[in-house]
């Protein structure tokens, strides 16, 4: 087993890649999808109670909020996956 990772490590990596792929699909959808490709169409919709057209709002506010949320979701999920696979970093690693 020189270059073959142990099963938990392999499983950890597969779960990580799947999560990353899912979040990148969302990342694409909120920015390139809602704020660019479908923006002209979404601009026909107003966010209730405000003067914002939806496509414009996604481009200047909504997509940024979504980006922040995506990173925090990733950080939380990865903490859990690492715990479940028993691969969290131990304290003596990394300096100080």
């Amino acid at each position: 087993m020189t270059s073959h990772p142990l099963p938990p490590r392999q499983r950890y990596w597969r779960r990580n890649v799947r999560l990353v792929a899912l979040l990148l699909v969302l990342w694409f959808a909120v920015s390139y999808g809602a704020a660019i490709l479908f923006a002209p169409w979404l601009n026909g919709i107003r966010i209730p109670g405000t003067g914002f057209r939806l496509g414009f709002w996604m481009a200047q506010q909504g997509s940024i909020l979504a980006f922040v949320a995506l990173i925090f979701v990733y950080a939380r999920r990865m903490d859990r996956i690492e715990r479940e696979e028993g691969l969290e970093e131990r304290d003596e690693e990394g300096s100080r």
């Binding site: 979040l23 481009a59 997509s63 980006f67 990173i71 990733y74």
Partner: peptide, 26 residues
């Protein structure tokens, strides 16, 4: 820049924030 170009200025807003998603995930 956004003030003078309106929606077109969104490229900077999204471009300079969306990159952090790539950075954090990849």
């Amino acid at each position: 820049i956004i003030s003078f170009s309106g929606y077109d200025g969104s490229v900077y807003l999204m471009g300079w924030t969306g990159g952090y998603v790539l950075l954090a995930l990849l």
